[in-house]
Each structure stands twice: as structure tokens, then as C-alpha cells.
Nucleic acid binder design. Structure first.
Lengths: 222, 222
DNA sequence: GTCTATATCCCGATAGAC
DNA sequence: GTCTATCGGGATATAGAC
């Protein structure tokens, strides 16, 4: 019932907020919180700097909003993959492949997370909704692990959180460290051929681990 | 032969530079390049802000010096491990364990690398000496891979660069993403028990991969 | 080589009209 | 709700004495 007299597309608060958030995501992902400029964000937007403060209160408030939006978009695909219909091994491979593709396709998200870790997650800890994002990831893995153990194809005992970390490690690093790694080793990690090889390697590695016998390689220390 | 008349520890340029570098490393690692303050660095130092500009020219110059020093310290341990004396599997495990321990013990280095990736390695690319750091890491791995293939214990073909990335991924992620991961999944990745479990998991995972038969798990796509 | 004081600019935040 | 203009703090960098 809002503004029924006026249907001109001016004064659309939701669209304005979305517009600001999109611009701020780019800016903060590219330059970090301290490096990002409110002026620059305003310039990318159809609206003005005054509106940023009107809607988000402060630079920090805007940054937190960007962070929450990025996380909420990132943690939704697990439930859409229909993993329960697949055998454990294929389900796990599908989940790894999707995580790999997602991280590769979301450099802004990856950079925001990196930046937030530099701040020791100080802003993320303020968020009230962020704990919910762990649920879909872990329940999907719990189910895969349980079925894999039951049918006997998974030889290694492993917790869902640890498996999730393993997957994240292999998918994330390529994206987060792309530039320093590429500079030092003179290679281009965004090359499609490299991309395919690493994707195969990621799932092969994790599957080799969960299906391997625990007693093969044990020595712990030098 | 420098300053032979005066042996008082005042006016020691090398020590002053080291002092500044150490303080700057902490500051930039904690807050990033844009977030770090030259004033704050000067306060941590025995010397003054003026000296920072005297020795390093600018904030960016100081940052680059910090970066080069961090990398040169990080990439030296491969040659000290005497890996050639060990069988391939044990050599690889020892290298992984050492990398794992090194990354865990060098949060400042890890954060600097993270920060530099946010800047798309713009500063690292300016450095002339940085390419040399790839050599020890790759030659050590080349040797291990060659011997592993000869004796037949390594079933998987793999390039040294890819293996290095695999190792780095598993060792780095725990440290880089410690805070966001810990916040979302309510766990403490710096806990010693977790540390041991993940260390074991890292080497078990990579060894499972290189010793696994290539033909076991092949399906590529969903 | 080292200090204090300061120039100069930039950025986050706000005022106030419409 | 949206705009322009601007304040005030703080940061990089420098000046100039010793």
C-alpha cells in the first residue's frame, strides 16, 4: 500500500538499498574495510552518500550488511543438490565440485571473507544471524558420512566439521591465494585447463582420504 | 669499519631498520596496508616517524620491505630438512608436517600474504627478488615425486607445483580462515587437540592421494 | 641521524534546503 | 527521501633545528 499515488520508479527504498549494497560489496571486496571509500561507493551508485548514512548509519554498518548478505547468498546451495538421492561417494564428489565451482565463481565473497579474517572476524561476531549458516553445510555432510560408513565405502572416521574444512581448504585456497601464488610460481590459476585439473584433484584427494584404510600411513613425527 | 670511534649502541642504522621492520610487520599484519598507521608504527619503535620516511621513503616502501622480509624468512626451511635421506613417503610427510607447523607458528606471515592477495599481489609483483623463493620448495618436491614414482609407491602422476598447492591449501586455510570458520562453526581451531588432529589429517590426506590408484574414482561431473 | 612541529590533504559524517 | 555543501578529525609526508 506504500506510495500508491506515485508509481514512478523513483523513491524505491528496497532498490536503493540493493543498489548501495552491490556497490559496497565491490568496493569492500576490492579494497578492504579500511581501504574502501564511502565516496567511491556513492559514486558507483545512482544515489548519494547521504543515503548511505540514512540507510546504514555508518561505514561499519554498511560493511556488516554487505558481509551478512554475502554469507547468506553463499550458504544455500547444499540443500538444492539433492545429495540424498546419490550414493555416498558420488554425493560427496558432487558437493565438492559444487563448492569448487562456487568459490571460483564468487571472488568477491572470497575476498570479503579473507578481509574479515584479517579483522579476526570482529564484525562477523556481531552478527546475530550468522550461526544459522553452518546448519545446511553440516547436515548434508553428516548424512553423507553416515551412509558412507554404513555401506562400508568410507574407511576413515571423520567429523562433518573436519570434512567441511578439508573441502573448504582445497576450494578456497586457489581463489584466495591466486595472486601471490601465481606471481611466485609464474602460473595462472584462473586458466581453464588449470581449473579443470585442480577440480579433479580436489575431489580425488578427499575421496582418496575417506576411502583409504586408516592403518596404511601412520607415522606422526619427524 | 663503520663508526669505529663510537661503540655506543646509539646510531646503529641496521638495528634501527630492523626495529622499524618488526614493528611495521605487526602493524600491517594486524590491520592491513590501508588500516595500518605510520604513527602507530613509530610509537612501537624506539625511533621516530621521521626515520621511517628517511629509511623507507613512504608507507608503501615500508610495506614492501615488510613483505619481502616475511617471504624470505618463510621460504628457507625446505633445504634444512634433509629430505633426500628419507624414503619418499616419509620425506613427504615430514615436509607436510613442517609446513603445517610453520604456518601455524607464523600468523603474521599468513596475514600479510592474505592482505597482499586482497591487493591482487600488486606490491609483490614490484619485487625483484621474490621469484627466487619458489626454487627451494619446488626442487624438494620434484625430488620426492621422482623417487616416489621410481619406487612405485606414488601411483598418481602429479606436478610439483600442484603438490605444493595441495600442501599449502591444507596448511594455510586453518590459519587464514581461523576466525570466520571458528565463529560460524563454534569451534576453536587454535586448540592443541584440534591442531594435532588436523595435522594428522593433512598428511594422511595428501599421502592417500599420491599413493592411490588413479583409476579408482573418476567421475567428473554432476 | 634524530627530534618536534606542522603543512596539506583526504575522508567519514552531518547540516539544512527542497 | 534526496540533494549539495561543508565541517572537523586524523593521516601521510615534510620542514628545519640540532
Amino acid at each position: 500500500m506504500r506510495s500508491s499515488k506515485r508509481e514512478t520508479r523513483k523513491n524505491d527504498p528496497d532498490k536503493t538499498k540493493e543498489d548501495i549494497l552491490a556497490a559496497a560489496t565491490e568496493e569492500f571486496a576490492a579494497l578492504g574495510l579500511a581501504g574502501g571509500r564511502v565516496d567511491a561507493i556513492a559514486e558507483r551508485t545512482k544515489t548519494s552518500k547521504r543515503m548511505i548514512y540514512y540507510y546504514f548509519g555508518s561505514k561499519n554498518g554498511l560493511y556488516l550488511a554487505v558481509l551478512e548478505k554475502a554469507y547468506s547468498q553463499a550458504r544455500t546451495y547444499e540443500t538444492d543438490l539433492n545429495l540424498a538421492a546419490l550414493e555416498p561417494i558420488e554425493a560427496l564428489r558432487k558437493l565438492i565440485n559444487h563448492t569448487f565451482d562456487h568459490d571460483e565463481a564468487s571472488p568477491d565473497f572470497v575476498r570479503l571473507v579473507m578481509n574479515e579474517n584479517i579483522h579476526r572476524a570482529a564484525h562477523l561476531k556481531q552478527s546475530k544471524v550468522i550461526a544459522d549458516f553452518s546448519v545446511p553445510a553440516l547436515t548434508a555432510l553428516d548424512d553423507i558420512i553416515r551412509r558412507g560408513r554404513e555401506t562400508g565405502v568410507f574407511k576413515h572416521e571423520i567429523e562433518a566439521v573436519d570434512l567441511h574444512m578439508l573441502i573448504s581448504s582445497l576450494c578456497f585456497f586457489r581463489v584466495t591465494n591466486r595472486h601471490t601464488f601465481g606471481t611466485i610460481f609464474q602460473c595462472d590459476l584462473s586458466d581453464p585447463e588449470t581449473y579443470r585439473r585442480h577440480r579433479q584433484m580436489a575431489s580425488d584427494t578427499i575421496l582418496a582420504y575417506v576411502t583409504s584404510d586408516c592403518s596404511t600411513a601412520q607415522k606422526t613425527d619427524p
